[in-house]
Amino acid sequence: MSVFEGFKFRKVSSVIHNLDPRVKFFFVCILFVMAIMFNQFLALVVLFFIPLPFVFMARVNRQWLRSLRGAALLAVFIFATNFIFGYFYPSSSIPHVDGAIDTSMEYFALFERAAAMTLRFVVLIASFSVFFLTTSPDHLGLALQQSHVPYEFCFAFTTAVRFVPVLADEAQTIMDAQKARGLELESGNFIKRVRNYIPILIPLIVNAIRRSLELAEAMESRAWGASDKRTNLYKLNLKRADITMVLITVLMLIIALYIWLFIPVPSLTSLLFT
């Protein structure tokens, strides 16, 4: 699951890691909005480069690349779908195309269009991946809480993150145990293969339920629900770096809005073919 690899937090310290998660989230959301605003290939290329300095500052380039590589398959799929769909339905949504696609310029326009749509997806993955790679789940939970998300949700979130590796280990153990008893996972047709997983799922679910009961018991024993005004050991404070980051983000948005309103972004096709 290499896509998830890119979303796994590792404890390191850098300017980016230490930023307030709310600020980082704001940045990522603005990037998201910008990726939706523009559908021109050139604009999306520019957007793709925006998270890069942050990746290098946080020194997470390797994991970041891995998450992009993990998303490659999906990207190819998006490209293919767009290309094929555009070929059969060359509507006016593809610029420079009138009627069926037969000239090289029209092929190029179709290609550019599909590439832009794919790039939009890549920009989203790239920016969200930076966010998750540099934000500890603890901080994220805290940010949710300070954004007035009910504590139960925040707790469920951090607990889920904490137990993912535990459950993954457990699944592996059960899988090994069942294989040792002669269970074959990789045989038969699709339906058979899905059914092969039942002897793994059942112990996994039973264990998870038992575990959650024990957890509930431990929570109760530590005064869960004692007060409506729960406090928190940590508190997020906006620092100077955070404010700088907010300013950069807002500036980015203003520039993007200006371009969107007043400057038509040229397409590659129009640059090359006219």
């Binding site: 530590r222 869960w224 007060s227 406090t231 050991l233 508190k235």
Partner: peptide, 13 residues
């Protein structure tokens, strides 16, 4: 965790 549940002020916690 238990102290947070009991709403203890941060410094004391």
């Amino acid at each position: 965790f238990g102290l947070e549940n009991s709403a203890m002020p941060r410094d004391e916690m």
